[in-house]
């Protein structure tokens, strides 16, 4: 116990520095993934069908829909590509994506595009986290958008509103209200997922705690700093939970 108290000032300083990196990754991921996820969700819902005219022509000629004509009318390339990307990023471990994104450019082009040192590792981590989380967010957005009853959009349409006005003035807030709870779950998961960046030696809080096991700043063989990082995560998730609760209460003035 005495030993721990002795080590504490050094350890806490180190853990704080690690936590800062954890926090930075969390914030950057949200800043990048929240808008990117929305763009991806629009992409996956895109109904742009450039070959539909072929299908329609076939139907006009034959007087009925066939398997081939249905293929052409229903072929939406943007939606298809985006859905495949989402499948890949949701269907493989984030840890693997981190490794590939960090090491792949160096292996293939012999040129590690991320730059060297901690800043390079952070950049690679941020890119991996943003893409991965954007894919998860896009599915939540899609559920939120499609969960708003069709009648809301139609009510806007018959009132002469544009598509943009309907989205920003009618659908968006109802969608936000619907997605806050599932988004909240993802945010809590993200807090803990940041530790995955340890795999490419990003100096986040787990890395900082682990350093005292191997030996650092005159302390070695100490396991308690690693365990103690749990306190940081608990406080972090606690604060995030409180913020989300506040947001949910803010949106409770209406029912959707």
């Amino acid at each position: 116990m005495e030993l721990i108290l002795q080590q504490a000032p050094i350890v806490i300083r180190s853990l704080n520095i690690g936590f800062l990196q954890t926090l930075k990754l969390f914030v950057i991921t949200l800043i990048g993934a929240l808008p990117l996820g929305l763009i991806i969700s629009f992409g996956s819902m895109s109904s742009w069908a450039p070959l539909a005219f072929i299908g329609r022509n076939m139907e006009r000629k034959n007087g009925r829909a066939t398997a081939a004509s249905r293929f052409f009318t229903g072929f939406c390339p943007i939606s298809l590509i985006v859905k495949i990307i989402v499948w890949v990023f949701r269907g493989t471990p984030l840890m693997l994506q981190l490794l590939i994104i960090y090491y792949f450019p160096g292996l293939v082009w012999g040129n590690p595009i991320w730059g060297s040192g901690e800043s390079g590792r952070f950049l690679a981590s941020a890119v991996a986290f943003i893409i991965n989380y954007a894919c998860y967010f896009s599915e939540i957005y899609r559920g939120g958008i499609q969960g708003v009853p069709r009648g809301q959009q139609e009510a806007g349409q018959v009132l002469g509103m544009t598509k943009g006005q309907i989205f920003f003035k009618v659908t968006l807030l109802q969608m936000v209200k619907r997605i806050v709870p599932p988004m909240g779950n993802e945010c809590i998961t993200l807090v803990k997922d940041t530790s995955l960046a340890r795999i490419i030696a990003l100096q986040e809080i787990i890395w900082a705690g682990q350093a005292f096991l191997k030996g650092s700043q005159g302390i070695s063989g100490a396991i308690w700093p690693l365990f103690f990082t749990g306190v940081y995560y608990l406080i972090f998730t606690g604060v995030v939970t409180l913020l989300l609760g506040w947001l949910e209460r803010k949106l409770s003035y209406f029912r959707a």
């Binding site: 009853p149 009648g151 809301q152 139609e154 009510a155 349409q157 018959v158 009132l159 002469g160 009618v170 807030l173 109802q174 209200k177 003035y253 209406f254 029912r255 959707a256």
Partner: peptide, 16 residues
């Protein structure tokens, strides 16, 4: 569309 107004069976008021 502005020539017409439509009142829906299920109201479709904007809840917010």
């Amino acid at each position: 569309r502005l020539h017409f107004g439509l009142v829906f069976q299920s109201f479709n008021l904007f809840p917010q």
